[in-house]
Design a protein around this nucleic acid. Sequence first.
RNA 1: CGGGGUGUAGCGCAGCCCGGUUAGCGCACCUGGUUUGGGACCAGGGGGUCGUGUGUUCGAAUCACACCACCCCGACCA
Length: 489
Amino acid sequence: MSDQLTKRAEDYAQWYNDLVLKADMAEHSDVRGCMVIKPHGYAIWEKMQRALDGMFKDTGHVNAYFPLFIPKSYLAKEASHVEGFAKECAVVTHYRLKSDPEHGVVVDPEAKLEEELIVRPTSETIIWNTYRGWIKSYRDLPLLINQWANVVRWEMRTRLFLRTAEFLWQEGHTAHATKEEAVEETLRMLDVYATFAEEWLAMPVIKGVKTASERFAGAEDTYCIEAMMQDGKALQAGTSHFLGQNFAKAFDVVFTNKENRQEHVWATSWGVSTRLMGALIMTHSDDNGLVLPPKLAPVQVAIVPIAKNEEQLNALRAYVQPMLDGLRAKGITVKFDDDDKKKPGWKFAEYEFKGYPVRIAVGPRDMENGTVEVARRDTLEKQVMQATDIAEKVEHLLQAIQDNLYQKALAMRERYTRAVDTYDEFKVAIEEGGFILAHWDGTAETEARVKEETKATIRCIPLQGDTTPGACMVTGRPSKQRVIFARAY
RNA sequence: CGGGGUGUAGCGCAGCCCGGUUAGCGCACCUGGUUUGGGACCAGGGGGUCGUGUGUUCGAAUCACACCACCCCGACCA
């Protein structure tokens, strides 16, 4: 870890790449665009999964699993869906290899598939094809299913966690008897995502609706949570789609209602991915490395003993044991690092770089005085504390860190969010970064023009906030409310 | 996929322009000893298809061509 991390101010993109690699979260694989998620990164993802999964269960959803492979023909059944995904699908054409003296192994031309399979870029088609058999009556509804899976989108340009060819995610797919119910579900899951982002990732988000041009392929409406990264760029952290009856019609999913009439069902889908790892990193981390909110840190507290010899180390083990018991009794995850092959200074640097929220150092001086040295990662402050009630003190400290990270991120977002009224002002503001609130006439033409001229896109039409009408900053035509423009990941 | 850059030990780099014995350096690693409150020190040691392939040459890390991977900028996207 002797190599330095690039400073954020110097090169933000490089800082991010360095950090992901050096904090041991992930590395590039030999396959273009794919990554290996390493234990330190995967442990964070597992904590995200556990929290989200609980929230899904609490809102009545159950998990299931659908196949990785989708018959090519399914994709074509929903017109805008195929248009959105066709360009980035991996296709399976054969099912067998054979050994070859020259090339080791080759595709067996005899083993060509009758119908080619695509590797799922998302699962709407295969799920709705399956739902057709499950849904007959209003009594079968609502159907509230989630799956945890990997998907593949053959992206041109990839970045660790933020955009990889294969990524991990969850995708919820629900079916409802009425439009109102489906819309309600769409918004409920958007709220779940927003709550998760704010309470677990300590990342403030703005809930909004996407414009038509940013909408999911096959959706009637796409809702999103948008977060601001430390470089002022926007990152879409989660989406929830109201799919109308598009997929029900494409896959002929009908149910008999209470009046004994046949109707197409109403659908939603919603997802968050390992992209959240990127969001987490870019929201809180600093030039000293990763900073993790305590609720998602795989290990919340690292305890480092400082001993000159084995005898002293044993004394420290005894000194620390009641603290370990006390912390664990409160459900706090602790690592007591008594590995004598590494020096304390090395451990301090390591835990700091990897984002452990709290580090406790204990040495002979502490044993004499009945104290410990507590360091917090978010502020880098160190404090000597009495060891009595240390579990309680640490519990409060972890909460304080969680709160502080959220408040810091929120303050940053507010500092870099501003309203402008003219296109000239806008062009200046967008160069400075952040979220720009401006009036827009609601047309795709204006949106495209702004994107073309400034590289900024409409991140969303916020669901909450100021709804005062005005005049479009570009055309002067009437606007119902300000929308959020930003450059985005 | 277009423009630019990089590829030499696990990591970071020098050597390449101007071809010539055994390819260096720092960190990391191994052994022994001294150390241990912010990435220890001394001594010894191990580790290389020089991204891959083809070509030029008596001889290629070095020259030429092709390919691959990664990074940055664009187009596309969660």
